[in-house]
Amino acid sequence: MVVQSAPFDLGAEAEAFGRAPGIGAVVTFSGVVRDLGDGLAAMEIEHYPGMSEAALEEIARAAVERWSLADVLVIHRFGKLVPGERIMMVATASAHRKAAFEAAEFLMDYLKSRAPFWKKEYRADGSEWVAAKGDDEDALTRW
């Protein structure tokens, strides 16, 4: 699990991931700074160094155990990103697709509200912290 400020190459990461024998399904998801043409100039992502990496490791470990994943990858960026840039990605690999899809959703649900990252939006008229959604917390109850 990687927390970095630099961009990552989704294609190269996906290509290199899940190559072990016995793997029949690879799911990748990537989160992007939405470009809605609504004046968003940048998205800044703050994290808690040390805890953010540990939280991702713990969430990934839980997913591997629960779905018997063959492999898992999480990359999450921090710093200032512009609309269209990739914020993060997860990849899961398993023998069959159901486990890979479910585990990817589980990883996303948990890292949205249990990993210490915070987003701030910058616009021409100022900046604002993104508020957590109640839905994100509710999403955890299905697991």
């Binding site: 989160g31 808690y48 805890m51 999450h76 914020i87 993060m88 996303m108 890292l111 949205k112 509200s113 249990r114 990993a115 210490p116 990252f117 915070w118 987003k119 912290w129 993104v130 508020a131 957590a132 994100d136 917390e137």
Partner: peptide, 10 residues
């Protein structure tokens, strides 16, 4: 000890 608002990762 760290204090922060609800997290907004992903």
């Amino acid at each position: 000890v760290a204090f922060f608002p609800p997290m907004t990762g992903g």
